[in-house]
Simulated scan of single mutants.
Amino acid sequence: MADSPTSPPPGEPIGARPDLPVCARHPDRATGLRCVRCDRPACPECLREASVGYQCVDCVNQGRAAVRRPRTFVGAELAQRMVVTPVLIAVNLLMYVITAAQAGSVSQNQASPLFVDFVMYTPAVAGADQWWRLLTSGFLHYGPLHLALNMIALYVLGRDLEPVFGRLRFSAVYLVSLLGGSVAVYLFGGIDTVVAGASGAVYGLMGAMLVAVLRLKLNPGPALGVIALNVVLSFTLPGISLLGHLGGLVVGAALTAGLVYAPADKRNTWQAAAVAAAVVLLVVMAVVRTGQLV
């Protein structure tokens, strides 16, 4: 009985088995195997086990590309791990380390030149056109306790929201909420108020969590309880910017509503428009306020 044809070892000259075709990906390899999907010759290295028989790597890749990945109610691909949340925590931590090193103090890092240049200070924004303070102040913190509380809250909220919202939408909610908190302080705060911290953005994520819970028709009790507790603490504890917290909360909830309730038809376009509209509105309000102060 004749032996069944098998593929020669990799690198064996084709001339050694002239009766066999060559691998579609490796012309120097003769093979008696074929892909069950495209029927092209393929050497063992180029074949992958499938539900029925073996497929070549090209067909396997094409099959993966054709599979539609599941999407969440926001329209984002469901992420398996966080990326934006750890990056935001790392940036906040880095800013604290830099300011503490410049100030030569762990608890009095607000004496740092970088802190002074980046903190939210209304006269500097209005009088010196230092608009960056509306965003950079959200990455500064007064001492390690202030930093730790905000980063723990960011991690807990980001752990639940980022995989569902996706990286772009989660980043948009965070940054626009941060801007919303600063603009609220700029619009309604005292002229000499100095504000820093990621609290506005964190409260924006709380608002996003509440809207998401309502959109999914889940029990909003826990989300409302967390928000109510934090608002009460904002009223009662000294040295906390209530305006920054409420501004971030309102902007985060409003923007998230625009994301989760966007029409399914052309959802990405509607969501991009919601983000753009929120940013434009905040900028316009800040410009109007500047005209009143100057």
Rank of each mutant, 00 (worst) to 15 (best):
V260N: 07
A278M: 08
A100H: 00
A184Q: 05
P144E: 11
Q62T: 15
G63D: 11
P13G: 11
I14Q: 14
R29D: 12
A111G: 11
W131T: 02
V287C: 08
V226E: 01
C56Y: 08
A172D: 09
A90P: 02
V283S: 00
T193C: 00
V74W: 03
R40H: 11
A201C: 06
A208W: 09
V226W: 09
L249T: 08
P5Y: 15
L205E: 04
H146W: 06
P238E: 13
R34H: 15
P238W: 06
V288W: 10
Q130P: 01
E49C: 08
P86Y: 02
A2K: 15
M95Q: 01
F118L: 11
V275F: 02
S182V: 10
V156H: 04
V275T: 08
D265S: 15
Y174G: 07
S137W: 00
A76D: 08
F139W: 05
A196N: 08
A198K: 07
V195Y: 09
G180N: 07
S112A: 13
N230M: 15
A286C: 01
L157C: 09
H26A: 05
Y186W: 14
F118R: 01
G104N: 12
L88E: 03
R215Q: 07
R167T: 06
V202H: 13
R133Q: 04
P220Q: 14
L149Q: 01
A223I: 14
V52T: 15
A274N: 13
G104K: 13
L229N: 02
S112F: 00
E49R: 15
L282F: 03
A228D: 00
L293M: 04
P220L: 02
A276K: 09
L33E: 03
E77A: 15
L135Q: 07
A100K: 01
A212C: 08
A286F: 01
V67E: 04
A128S: 11
R69D: 09
N230V: 03
Q130S: 05
R267M: 12
A223F: 13
R48K: 07
L293H: 05
R17H: 12
P5D: 11
D265T: 12
A277K: 08
G75N: 04
D39P: 05
M206P: 05
D28G: 04
V97E: 06
M1R: 12
W270K: 13
P113N: 14
L33G: 00
A212E: 08
V173S: 08
R215W: 10
G180R: 01
V260K: 00
G190A: 10
G248M: 06
S171D: 11
M285H: 13
G291T: 12
R167D: 09
V57A: 15
S171A: 15
G248L: 05
R69V: 15
R69T: 09
A103T: 13
A277R: 07
A153C: 14
L134A: 02
T99L: 03
G15T: 15
R69E: 05
V97C: 14
L135P: 06
L255C: 01
Y54H: 03
M151P: 02
L114T: 09
P220S: 04
I152M: 07
A90D: 13
Q102N: 09
A264N: 14
G143F: 05
A16C: 06
C56G: 00
I240T: 06
T290M: 13
K266Y: 10
R37D: 15
W131L: 04
L229F: 14
L149I: 14
A65M: 08
